[in-house]
Design a protein around this nucleic acid. Sequence first.
DNA 1: TAATGCAGTTAGAATCATTCTAATTCTAAA
DNA 2: TTTAGAATTAGAATGATTCTAACTGCATTA
Lengths: 150, 150
Amino acid sequence: MPPPTPRNPAKPSGLDCRLAVLGSDVRLTPHRREVFDVLAGSTDHPTAYEILDRVKSRSPHISLATVYNCLDHLTSAGLIKLVHLERGQSRYCANLHEHVHFHCEKCGKVIDAHPAADFDPGKFWNLPAGTKIARTDLAIHGTCSACAAK
Amino acid sequence: MPPPTPRNPAKPSGLDCRLAVLGSDVRLTPHRREVFDVLAGSTDHPTAYEILDRVKSRSPHISLATVYNCLDHLTSAGLIKLVHLERGQSRYCANLHEHVHFHCEKCGKVIDAHPAADFDPGKFWNLPAGTKIARTDLAIHGTCSACAAK
DNA sequence: TAATGCAGTTAGAATCATTCTAATTCTAAA
DNA sequence: TTTAGAATTAGAATGATTCTAACTGCATTA
């Protein structure tokens, strides 16, 4: 009996469409697509619960576990970013352009700030020789213009 | 009956010694002092549990609630810093010199990196007019030299 | 000195975010 | 059509943090 030929799980067809990003890839199931679309259509850095609420309008039976599962897959594929600004719930962000997060300490709002100039962290901080930088997360905390005006 | 004269709770005496830092102040009770000393003597950014373990060698009866309580007071007084690098436990840092955190994604180690040059976040990112910056948190993720050498 | 008030402390309960588990369903390949 | 593997689900479990209510001890006031 000949050995079974290996399947090719990466072949796109029907629902099994994949996006290759940064060397990784995800199978974009309907739920993952919805979670991604909700996040891509949000600029407020929603939490997993907020994403669940928004996806529910389209898929009323989706569970929180599935939302976390989708978010983990999308994050490890590099399609979205996980943002930790405070204790408590994590927030998610689908803005893949280079940016940093401004966090208003008064109202809690999170605003994306885009680069005005090239930023090379290696120029500003002394890291031990041999250190390899994969990514940087800059959080700027302060008071947003609306709160500062009050 | 004359109204009671207000006490002056800020008057230092005996245990009631305070440190004024950044406009805020804390009453340095023995536990707060021990928590601070443990953190000041650590360079590994311990979690609340790790701090509890270390403080216990001096104060065997201290509780986790007290450690959290002390850490919150020390943090809001600006004597220590709260560091969020990953989901899960928060980490604490008593290095008050300007610095950023390098986080090794392989071994989990956190290393303080000190500035090699002046860094002005306002120069590199477009923030809405009127935004007030209070502080910035930069986390650099990557592979430390020891892990990179393997 | 005794009474009082308040901040600090405590153990344990409660809460909240996240992860795990086991059963079920779906998809695509054989 | 069968099968294997991945996705999905509800609910349980876990883990981190916060809350609660009682207690302690210092410092002020009587």
